[in-house]
């Protein structure tokens, strides 16, 4: 596959994984937790490096997943002892991120891990970091990592679809039915951290947040059915990745930034034009009602 093809594939995989996980975050009103985890993942990566002394993807993945779940846990903990939830998120992610940045500036001199990379990702270098087994070129490592995480996510969602669905829409009923709501919560948090860290390495923190929230929000404005929302969200994720790449090529700017902007543009269009929940259709409906009553 061509260089361009690999980048588009990586972006699309990020779009699909994040889009799917993001839907649940939006439905559970936990979108800001995505923002939080995408920041604290930095501490996980730095911590994994300091402990394992290597930059292997596996260690990074484990470290980031651990810190991601810890973030969710700390937020829950602070909330349960009476800190209001928005402040709990704000305190936890900023402090963990600050510790990450401090560790990075203390020991980061030797590491190939600079902050800009963490923020913007290095999607342009993805096609050159190739996975080779027995000398056979299997394509970029990032694609394999993202693909694995995506499949893992899909398996989890298919296995627990009903449970996740009920506990997202009606947590009280889920508890009454005997669904382990807390387990589902941490399962989702685990998925979120895995997805975040797998995407983080290639597209950086900003795009992760954008890809987690924007496609899901767009899909939320287009449908009332969860299964449709999941598919639409993945589709929007892929579309923004592709559109963003071409914008970046034309203006010679950051690829991940452009993907975030493309996602934003798609959302804005949907916000105005959505047939069910858009500004325009609601305005028309109101006009029609006014005419009728007049």
């Amino acid at each position: 596959m061509s260089y361009e093809g690999w980048i588009l594939l990586t972006g699309s995989l990020v779009g699909i994984s994040c889009g799917i996980v993001g839907c649940f975050l939006i439905l559970r009103k936990m979108a800001m937790l995505a923002d939080a985890i995408s920041h604290t993942v930095l501490l996980g990566i730095v911590g994994a490096y300091l402990i394992s002394n290597s930059l292997e993807g596996v260690y990074m993945l484990i470290g980031a997943a651990v810190v991601g779940i810890l973030t969710a846990f700390f937020v829950q903990l602070l909330h349960s002892i009476g800190v209001q939830s928005d402040a709990a998120i704000g305190v936890v992610f900023t402090s963990l991120f600050a510790v990450g940045v401090i560790l990075l500036s203390l020991f980061g001199g030797k590491v190939h891990l600079d902050v800009e990379h963490a923020l913007m990702g290095e999607i342009t270098f993805i096609p050159w970091d190739i996975l080779e087994i027995n000398g056979i070129n299997l394509g970029p490592k990032a694609v394999w990592m993202l693909g694995t995480v995506l499949i893992l996510n899909l398996i989890i969602i298919l296995l627990f679809y009903k449970e996740i669905k009920i506990s997202s829409f009606d947590p009280d009923m889920a508890v009454a039915l005997g669904i382990p709501v807390l387990f589902i919560h941490y399962l989702l948090m685990g998925m979120l951290s895995l997805t975040t860290v797998a995407s983080f390495d290639s597209v950086g923190a900003i795009l992760v947040v954008a890809m987690l929230i924007v496609p899901g929000a767009t899909a939320y404005l287009l449908t009332d059915k969860l299964s449709v929302m999941l598919m639409l969200s993945a589709l929007v994720g892929v579309l923004s990745a592709i559109a963003g790449y071409f914008i970046a090529m034309i203006f010679n700017v950051s690829i991940s930034g452009s993907m975030a902007v493309a996602a934003g543009v798609i959302f804005a269009i949907t916000f105005v034009l959505s047939p069910t929940h858009g500004l325009l259709s609601r305005w028309l409906a109101r006009k029609r009602l006014q005419n009728k009553s007049a």
């Binding site: 795009l207 203006f251 930034g257 934003g264």
Partner: peptide, 9 residues
């Protein structure tokens, strides 16, 4: 995220 992405661009 969209504003920040635009900022990075």
């Amino acid at each position: 995220s969209v504003f920040f992405g635009f900022g990075i661009v």
